[in-house]
Amino acid sequence: MNIFRLTGDLSHLAAIIILLLKIWKSRSCAGISGKSQILFAIVFTTRYLDLLSTFISLYNSCMKVIYIGCAYATVYMIYMKFRATYDGNHDSFRVEFLVVPVGGLAVLINHDFSFMEILWTFSIYLESVAILPQLFMISKTGEAETITTHYLFCLGLYRALYIFNWVWRFYFEGFFDLIAIVAGVVQTILYCDFFYLYVTKVLKGKKLSLPA
């Protein structure tokens, strides 16, 4: 555990809670991609199956349970509780174009050809692109609520901090994982355009809206 890892996890937790609170307080999931949230629920489920087989630490187990629980709660709020406010027409990203290639890649490129390891690899690859339906939705509608941009910023910050964490682990533990690093860098790059808009617009008190 190092400072980048811990702040990365906390940033990730903040993102998840910001999104849940936004939906709960406004009684609406307008502007939120249900497809991205389903993908994140799949990511957590396939990665944290080791909750049942391996104990790492209390911190590790608790965070995993919280992440999975929040992911399913978010999906429930979007597709069940506040379904009437879900903007399905604008959430039109074709997720099969992500899930199928990512599944194929996980079978082809992994550390070990075993069920658990392939699912872990699948979750790493899927997480790197799971935000695309959300970014696609924003580019389609041309705007995002400020609270949604805070959610995206925390999520992107978590990825960036994890990269620093891996640099740290490489220097101090002599360990690196190419699969996670490549997927993590891809994921962080996807946020760069958004980071730019966040700093130049949202932090200056303006709403995030894209030029028509």
Binding site: R5, D9, H12, D50, T54, I56, S57, N60, M63, K64, Y67, H111, D112, F113, S114, E117, W120, T121, Y162, N165, F175, D177, I179, A180
Partner: peptide, 10 residues
């Protein structure tokens, strides 16, 4: 098999 050592991460 050779598993990833990153299993302690989230």
């Amino acid at each position: 098999g050779i598993d990833s050592q990153l299993k302690d991460e989230l």
